[in-house]
Nucleic acid binder design. Structure first.
Length: 260
DNA sequence: AATACCGTCAACCGCTGGACA
DNA sequence: CTGTCCAGCGGTTGACGGTAT
């Protein structure tokens, strides 16, 4: 099962290793002109001796025009840490909350820098809990995470959804514990019309376009109570309201949530 | 000056799950 | 149901540059 990775065609040997500027140019021009389509056909159409997988990676991690370059800001750093506490090593999900950053970039940043920083603060980067024997010091040095994540109780807004979280830097989030994977869903849809749904029991992330963030009301079996209430969102978090959320995000007037 | 060591980052590898025949 | 193809994901590797010895 699964697909074979970058096996060279019998006739021509596929290139590996670092990309040359010429290769970058070919790939970039091809995708700008024709779009991605099927990655496995991209190298042939673009005139590259690379496998489709390599092209895809090069585009996603380096050539994409919307990529943000340069070092991570303090806000991004805090966000990665707080998201990692919730999501673990789900780099792509973490990356989806940081516009212009790739999963690879975040993973590298985590492994080369953030892990070390957390250890220096006496925090286990895996569990995000104080390292044994270093509890006192780490408690003192640990940043006030309530400024990053808090746990609002806005049942009247989302009566069927118990897991709603506010993050000062990200906005308002719910947790989708669909099957074995939990994931964050950003709430919003401000300024949009609202409708309701009764059939579901959990949220699913939808696409985010512009400043319009919407949610899918998805039918899954349960809400991620267990994981987050027990492990992540205990009393240390203060409550925030939707109004507060709106104010922090800088919305004027009414805001609404769109269900579909 | 040489080289050993370390940190960073781009790229690869192997695996998974979805779509489809 | 099974096999194949594909995109996507996370772990790992290797190249490279900077710093220490």
């Amino acid at each position: 099962m699964g697909h074979q990775s970058c096996i060279a065609a019998p006739k021509q040997k596929l290139r590996k290793g670092l990309w040359s500027p010429e290769e970058d140019e070919k790939l970039y021009n091809h995708i700008i002109r024709y779009g991605v389509g099927c990655w496995s056909s991209v190298p042939k159409l673009a005139g590259l001796q690379r496998c489709g997988k390599s092209c895809r990676l090069r585009w996603i991690n380096y050539l994409r025009p919307d990529l943000k370059r340069g070092s991570f800001s303090q806000q991004e750093e805090d966000l990665i840490i707080s998201l990692h506490e919730i999501l673990g090593n789900r780099w792509s999900q973490i990356a989806s909350q940081l516009p212009g950053r790739t999963d690879n970039e975040i993973k590298n940043f985590w492994n080369s820098s953030l892990k070390k920083k957390l250890r220096q603060r006496g925090i286990d980067p895996t569990t995000h809990k104080p390292i044994a024997g270093d509890a006192t010091e780490s408690q003192e040095e640990k940043p006030d995470i309530s400024t990053i994540i808090s746990s609002p109780v806005d049942q009247q807004v989302f009566p069927n959804f118990e897991q709603q979280y506010f993050t000062a830097s990200m906005g308002f989030y719910g947790v989708n514990n669909n099957s074995s994977r939990s994931e964050l869903c950003e709430y919003g849809g401000y300024g949009e019309s609202s409708s309701n749904s009764t059939g579901g029991s959990n949220w699913n992330c939808s696409s985010v376009s512009g400043n319009h963030e919407v949610l899918n009301w998805d039918s899954v079996t349960h809400i991620g109570n267990t994981i987050l209430e027990e492990e992540h969102f205990e009393p240390k978090f203060a409550a925030h309201s939707w109004q507060e959320h709106a104010e922090i995000r800088g919305f004027d007037g009414d805001f609404d949530v769109e269900f579909f």
